[in-house]
Computed example of a mutant assay.
Amino acid sequence: MSETQLLASISEAVTIAVSELVTVAKLQAGDLLVMGCSTSEVRGARIGTESTTDVGETIVAAATAVLEPQGIALAVQCCEHLNRALVLEKAVAMQHNWPICNAVPQLHAGGATAMAAYKHFKEPVVVERVAADAAIDIGDTLSGMHLKPVAVPVRLAVKTIGEAHVTAGRVRPKYIGGARAVYDESLM
C-alpha cells in the first residue's frame, strides 16, 4: 500500500469511528471528545518509537471534519512525556476554567497527534486534565482517564486504525438512590 493510500484509509477509518462514537454517545454541541493516539502504533510499531507527523495530521483533520460542524470540541491527549496533558482550543479551556499550562507538544514530547492538534487548532492551549463526554483511543494510550464519571465502554465497528487497536467510551449520569430508585432510560 502506498503512503497516499495508507493515509486515505486512516482518514476513512477515523471518520467512521468518530462518527459512530458521536452517535452512540449522543454527543451534541458543547460536548467534549478526547482522543489519544499513537501514530507509531498506527504504523505498526511499538508506542513512542516511530511517531509520524503525516499520520497525526491526517487523524486530527479527519476527526475535526466530523466534530467541528456539530459544535463538538476535540481535546487531543499528549504522550506520557507531557504527563498525558491535552491540547484543545483556548475557548474550551476558559469555558470550563481548566488551568492552562505552558507546553508545546513536540514529536517525542507530546506526540505527533498532539503536535498536529496544536498546529490545526485556531487558538491551541495545553491543559493537564479535562472531564470529557466521550473518548477514542487509537493505540492503547489510556485516554479514558480523561472521561467524566461514569465511563461506559463503546464497541465500535472500527476495531483498528492502521495497525493500532481502537477503544472508545462514553459517559452516563451516575445512578443514585437504592432499591426504590427509578431511572430515566434515555440517559443510560
Rank of each mutant, 00 (worst) to 15 (best):
Q5D: 14
L6S: 09
S9N: 12
S9T: 13
I10K: 10
S11D: 13
T15A: 10
S19M: 12
S19L: 11
E20D: 12
L21P: 03
V22F: 07
V24E: 13
K26M: 12
L32C: 02
T39H: 00
E41H: 01
E41G: 00
V42C: 02
R43Q: 13
G48S: 05
S51Y: 02
T53V: 00
A62F: 03
A63F: 05
V66I: 15
L67A: 02
G71T: 07
A73S: 15
Q77A: 02
Q77S: 01
C79L: 00
E80I: 04
L82K: 01
R84D: 13
L86C: 06
L88F: 06
N97Q: 14
C101F: 06
N102G: 00
A103T: 04
H108C: 03
G110P: 04
G110S: 03
A114P: 10
A114V: 06
K119Q: 15
H120K: 15
F121L: 15
K122A: 14
V127C: 05
E128P: 08
D133G: 06
A134S: 14
G139Q: 13
D140W: 02
H146F: 06
L147P: 08
L147V: 09
K148F: 11
A151P: 15
A151D: 11
L156R: 07
A157T: 15
T160W: 08
V166S: 02
R170Y: 08
V171W: 07
R172A: 12
P173F: 10
P173A: 07
Y175L: 13
A179H: 12
A179M: 10
R180A: 15
A181R: 06
V182T: 05
V182F: 07
E185T: 03
S186K: 12
M188K: 13
